[in-house]
Design a protein around this nucleic acid. Sequence first.
RNA 1: GCGGAAGUAGCUCAAUUGGUAGAGCGAUAGCCUUCCAAGCUAUAGGUUGCGGGUUCGACCCUCGUCUUCCGCUCCA
Length: 489
Amino acid sequence: MSSIQDNKFQAIISHAKEYGFVFPSSEIYDGLSAVYDYGPYGSELKKNIRDYWWKSMTQLHENIVGIDAAIFMHPTTWKASGHVDNFSDPMIDNKDSKKRYRVDHLIEAHADKLKEAGKEQEAAALLAEMERTLDKEQDYAAVKKLIEEFKIVCSVSGTANWTEIRQFNLMFDTKVGSVAEEADTIYLRPETAQGIFVNFLNVQKTARMKIPFGIAQTGKAFRNEIVARQFIFRMREFEQMEMQFFVRPGTEGEWYKFWKEARLQWHLSLGLEASKYRYHDHVKLAHYAKEACDIEFEFPIGFKEVEGIHSRGDFDLSQHEKFSRKKQQYFDNDLNEEGKPYGNYIPYVIETSIGLDRMFLLILSNSYEEETLTKEDGSADSRVVLHIPAKLAPVKLAILPLTKKDGLPEIAKELMNECKQQFKCFYEEKDAIGKRYRRQDAIGTPFCVTIDHQTKEDQTVTIRHRDSMTQERVPLSKVREIVTQAIEK
RNA sequence: GCGGAAGUAGCUCAAUUGGUAGAGCGAUAGCCUUCCAAGCUAUAGGUUGCGGGUUCGACCCUCGUCUUCCGCUCCA
């Protein structure tokens, strides 16, 4: 990462705070690491991105419906999904090499060494002891002792200078039940997907969906990241926009291809440059995946994942069928080549999963520009402008009377009342007009309308375009239509 | 988690060898009525990150602590 890009990223973070897009969480208490709050303009932008996604999924696709599942889910959900077992391993660090190990891997590797050296009994004893202390009792002090007794050393530093054993748990947990002792531990969901899977049949039956069909959901998810940095790119609390698409087994390949292409098109539909996007196909796949790729975008901090498309097979539904003992099958009435119904099966799933906060950062960082201008008298000038796509901009139209006298504010307020029904407007009569334009540039408002003395004579106003800074004279009565057209484009 | 650097007004920065904090911008109110920031007046805003120590006296020296940034480590 170059220092220029680095500075740009810092500038964007500062701008986001200064203009009410993103604040560090709990800032007056020195902040909370890897958690951020969205301010007045940030929450508008975020909502607009979410709405645009939601509409493109559930309104433009007749075979996709939405749900809003709870963040709390039955704890068994996460056993079924693999999150409990696969992502909560005890870890230990070697203080000299700074290398971090999964404790079970470290001990198993040592046992293998013992076996190679012909000390079968010792190896067996070690593994048995690990099973008792680590897996059954989860007595980390005893496991640490075990490591010391067997003089297990780090393969890099060769020392046995270990930290305490710590559990790096992906999931946050909390207690359900008002009486503490009787309370059960439940988890804050680490992904929204499982809320869709456990409701698969509810949705399919009540909305009378036929395969292939999709279920979309947006919502918060929580992950205990080991290192959380890079602003809102990696947060402990974040929002996902996910769509799980259920298909007949055997057709997953073509649907994976379809969604891989369709999702990139969605990004490009916002007018973002294709050259800033690329696919990253996964070679090493997660435990649930058959095929997977990321859509990456060139952020100021380099190419980073914004969205993932995964072919999950029937892993999730099969797991839930196994753990819940409830059939998760779909009866397919369509006829196969032999003229018979396809019959019962567990559908395969193609997942599209995009991080709303990452999309927000994408829009923000890609929109940000420090422009150098030349004034009419030849002197240098500058402005900071956010080229946010009009349909996503927090404020669509600023209504500015040139002066606050002579009846201009009255006309402006009339226009305000007309337009605010339709889209977000901002009214301001203070300060020089140039200064007001700059303030709107800084929050990405695509249009400014100025009411002047001529307006009183011929009912026209100047409309000023953010990106080009050009102005045109238009009838007052056309303003609402012009803005509406631009944001629906 | 480890190593390095930094914390003074919303932002950018001042404050002579230690002598109880200032400016510009920004904000707010008013003046001016002007189509692309930086005209005039006034006002608000700081236990100098926090806590201890040294000192007659600490933004300044010292110790601890917290936070942020950079690098390493980890990452579904």
